[in-house]
């Protein structure tokens, strides 16, 4: 077992408009338990507001849960320092336009990640590393002094993936990595993620609302609704005989390409 979470729970306060007093709490994630094996792709589906992104952020460490435990390689995550955790788990964000600092060059963005992993590294070595990373994600290597705004959404997402890879993580949490990309580019990025999985045996938690993507990628699917994991199983099982009414509704609402495709 690479990663396991037990009864994770997170609620956010609702503040009154006038005095910002807490007048209630909204439960974003309720009792979420999941487990991820090495080399596995775990699909996390649900509509917006179902808590899937919050769950992803808890696992990567961007949000502290109210209660519950996370075990990484059978050790409680509390025993890891922030850096150790970052070396194991990385995240690729939904919006490639918002997740790269517009004032840093691509070289700086990637160098930052590399230096987090290896403190002592010579300049030449560092440049070598960056070029290697860019090669991995299929980007040209002469872009080190370019800035994020010079790239398209798909290219930025590749840079985001390169940044995650710089830590040589064992788990990548991909939060809707293709939902803001064009259809013709989506397939490129999904293929890249699959290639990297084979090359480095990375495990993914793939967060999405696009069921056609998840059934294609995932080995195991969790369906979330209002903070709860309401159904889990292999894609074929969930697809053919969903047990929960909501899952059925979710899958039926997907527009299908019904016409015969050659």
């Amino acid at each position: 077992m690479l990663l396991e979470t037990k009864n994770l729970r997170k609620s956010f306060p609702i503040e009154s408009k006038l005095l910002r007093q807490v007048i209630g709490r909204v439960i974003a994630v309720d009792n979420a338990s999941l487990s991820l094996n090495k080399g596995q792709v775990l699909g996390l589906v649900g509509e917006s507001g179902s808590g899937k992104t919050t769950l992803g952020k808890i696992v990567v460490g961007l949000i502290e849960p109210d209660s519950g435990e996370i075990f990484l390689q059978d050790k409680n995550i509390k025993n890891f320092t922030r850096k150790e955790r970052a070396k194991k788990i990385q995240m690729v964000f939904q919006d490639p336009f918002a997740s790269l600092n517009p004032r840093l060059s691509i070289g700086t963005i990637l160098a930052e990640a590399i230096r987090t992993r290896e403190q002592v590294i010579g300049n030449r070595q560092q440049v070598e590393k960056i070029k290697e990373l860019l090669n991995l994600v299929g980007m040209p290597t002469n872009i080190l002094s370019d800035y994020p705004h010079q790239f398209s959404g798909g290219q930025r997402q590749r840079i985001g993936i390169a940044r995650a890879l710089a830590m040589q993580p064992e788990i990548i949490i991909a939060d809707e990595p293709v939902s803001s990309l064009d259809v013709s580019i989506q397939a490129q990025i999904l293929n890249l993620l699959l290639d990297l999985k084979q090359k480095f045996s990375i495990s993914y938690i793939f967060i999405t609302h696009d069921l056609s993507i998840v059934t294609f990628l995932a080995d195991y699917i969790l369906v979330m609704y209002q903070g709860n994991i309401i159904e889990e199983g292999k894609p074929e099982e969930i697809l053919t005989k969903p047990k929960d009414k909501y899952t059925e509704k979710l899958f039926n609402s997907l527009p299908k390409i019904t016409c015969q495709i050659l």
Binding site: S184, I185, A187, N191, S212, F216, E236, L254, K256, I257
Partner: peptide, 17 residues
């Protein structure tokens, strides 16, 4: 049309443009 993941099918790669 080829690059769309098809429900239920599981090829090892998508055909990308």
């Amino acid at each position: 049309i080829r690059s769309l993941p098809k429900k239920g099918e599981k090829p090892s790669r998508l055909s990308a443009i």
